[in-house]
């Protein structure tokens, strides 16, 4: 691209944003690192960063990882059939997909999770329905399964939308050509639709994995306060125990873990994430 003087002077338009990045992204990260690296005696120490390896914290971390991996996997498994069904019925083009997936987000998410608590509780709506059908009630309340249902419910749209957008861009002629050459539906999916949907899949993974690993409200409500994700432990360090250094140390460990695992998934290519949702 040619960069004339008009273009060069345009760089100055970003100065408010650069100031904002420094003031509210870079410095806060510096501050949380400072708290995390300050030990009990006030000097520099790695004790709160390494606190993640305490058995209690490690257990919460492993549980968070299980929830996040499970949630990501279930979201992927639910999304592909949905995207294919929408494509098959040609429902995507009228904005129908966006519509049904975005609308629920306008009901407050804590209320929606509370509604799941009512549905899943031992004498809740689901068991009432099961009893009417003559089936055994399920003991889902305050279990990992309930938390899993909650996170899959909350983050499913973030997986469906980017995959849907990637699949919608596939040239119909390629699929027609493959069919003409004798490919069956499964081969078309394996050789064309899936490979071309990978960029969408990757941004879906980024958008689902991190929040499901670090949420604390869903596990608080659906886990009944007994099952703790790492997010619950960090939150309690700030609200109940008031040990800000430990809370910061755990946050920094979590952040490092998340950034490393995301670096494996994608190389900073989350652009279009915003527009993918709209």
């Amino acid at each position: 691209m040619k960069k004339g003087s008009a273009v060069k002077s345009r760089v100055w338009l970003s100065s408010p944003y650069i100031v904002w990045i420094i003031g509210f992204t870079v410095i806060p990260l510096g501050v949380i690192f400072k708290y995390a690296l300050t030990g009990r005696e006030g000097g520099f120490s790695l004790e709160y960063i390494s606190a993640i390896f305490d058995p209690i914290h490690l257990k919460a971390m492993v549980f968070s990882l299980e929830i996040a991996l499970g949630c990501t996997l279930f979201c992927i498994l639910l999304s592909y059939p949905l995207v294919l069904a929408l494509k098959h019925l040609n429902l995507g083009k009228q904005g129908f997909t966006m519509f049904i997936l975005i609308l629920p987000m306008w009901m407050n998410f804590i209320l929606r999770i509370l509604a799941w608590q009512m549905i899943l509780s031992n004498n809740g709506i689901l068991n009432l329905l099961l009893a009417k059908l003559g089936m055994e009630p399920l003991q889902l309340a305050n279990t990992g399964a309930a938390i899993m249902i909650g996170v899959v419910y909350d983050y499913l749209p973030y997986m469906v939308l980017p995959i849907f957008n990637a699949v919608a861009e596939i040239d119909e002629d390629i699929i027609e050509a493959a069919k003409d050459l004798g490919a069956n539906g499964f081969t078309v999916f394996r050789k064309i639709i899936f490979p071309l949907s990978v960029p969408g899949l990757l941004s879906g993974i980024v958008m689902v994995f991190v929040p499901s690993m670090t949420s604390f409200v869903i596990s608080d409500i659906l886990g009944g306060g007994k099952l703790q994700l790492i997010g619950n432990i960090i939150e309690q360090e700030f609200t109940k125990s008031a040990n800000w250094n430990l809370g910061s140390g755990l946050s920094v460990s979590l952040m490092i873990f998340v950034l490393i695992s995301m670096a494996f998934t994608t190389k900073n290519e989350v652009e279009g994430k915003g527009s993918a949702i709209w």
Binding site: K3, V7, K8, R10, V11, W12, L13, S14, S15, P16, Y17, I18, W20, I21, T25, V26, L29, I32, V206, V210, P211, M213, T214, F216, G231, I234, E235, S251, V252, L254, M255, V258, L259, M262, N268, V270, E271, K273
Partner: peptide, 30 residues
């Protein structure tokens, strides 16, 4: 910001975009 960043040299553009992605990639709690 976007108008300005777009006019930046490749290297500066990438640095600013990394910082733009931080609040998106980072956990809300952090």
């Amino acid at each position: 910001g976007a108008l300005g960043i777009h006019a930046m040299r490749q290297k500066n553009y990438q640095i600013v975009m990394i910082f733009t992605n931080i609040p998106l990639l980072n956990a809300d709690i952090v």
